[in-house]
Amino acid sequence: MMGWDMATAPSRQGRKRAMKDLLLVTDLDHTLVGDRQALTCLNRTLEILRSRISLVYATGRSLAGARQLQQEESLLEPEGWATGVGSTLLWRGKPDPVWDQRLQRCWDRHALAALLSHWSELTLQPASEQTPYKLSYELTTPRMGAEAHQFEQRLRAGLRQADLQARIVLSSGYQLDLLPMAAGKGAVSGYLQQKLGLQPHQVLCCGDSGNDRSMLGGPWWGVMVSNARPELLAWWRQVRPDTLLRSNRHHAGAILHALDTLPLLL
């Protein structure tokens, strides 16, 4: 099944003029990583197409954790690392000062931490998982479906009452990240699209969980792996973006499916 059709794609003539490059943004755990055989095939394909593709890893991991996974799984070196759920951006090995400046707006990490210190149902994640622009907790009791929605609504109400702003990202029913409103995987994908001078049809985002919703729901192409988590499947059933491919392949195989199926790099 797929959530797009050829009527939504640019004309072939238009693609020949514009599709000279592709921004490929992929989550790591359970998306790019999880099937060694499929990953090896994808790596070969990306190496062949490397002159045409800008590769970005967008992950909830810290940079150190993502680098460790890269070594363990023999991942290609990307142009960009969007770590901490899109709260930190390294482009070709260097911080992006324009991105960092965007995140500073209306972000009061100290006040958010003080507010949530009174929430007994939240446990602060280790220091290794915190960044200047990401405040991360774990829920003592996982919440899925309607319970997760109710929790997010209650948290938003608490932020409004305290006159604080933050993007709320709940993943896997128990991982909670608070980010600046300008942060997130979708925001960093859009920022890089503009930075590289690309059109939305020259961007492909790939993911499996709730923290991938913002980038899979963008105006560009997306692919959802067949092993997607329940919260992402529930979102897909409700939203069904026209530009999102629901692949019948898992992990890196879904990215290969998207490269073979969607009107990319023609």
Rank of each mutant, 00 (worst) to 15 (best):
M2F: 11
M2Q: 15
M6P: 02
M6E: 13
M6F: 13
T8E: 13
G14S: 14
R15V: 05
R15S: 04
A18T: 13
M19G: 08
V25S: 04
D35T: 06
R36Y: 08
R36S: 14
Q37Y: 13
T40M: 13
L42E: 02
N43G: 15
N43Q: 15
E47I: 09
S51R: 15
I53W: 09
L55D: 05
G65D: 09
A66Y: 01
Q70M: 07
Q71G: 10
L75V: 02
E77M: 12
P78V: 02
P78E: 00
V85P: 01
L89Y: 00
W91L: 11
R92Y: 09
G93K: 07
R102S: 11
R105H: 14
D108H: 14
H110C: 11
L112S: 03
L116W: 14
S117A: 15
W119A: 14
L122N: 05
T123N: 12
S128F: 12
Q130F: 07
A146S: 11
E152L: 14
E152C: 15
L159A: 08
R160K: 12
I168N: 01
V169R: 04
L170A: 04
S172H: 15
P180F: 05
K185V: 02
L192H: 05
Q193C: 13
L198P: 00
L198C: 01
Q202F: 08
C206H: 03
S209N: 10
D212S: 04
G218E: 00
W220G: 00
M224K: 06
R229L: 13
P230T: 00
L233M: 11
W236A: 08
W236E: 12
W236F: 11
R237E: 15
D242W: 10
S247D: 10
H250R: 15
A252R: 01
A252Q: 00
L264T: 02
L265M: 06
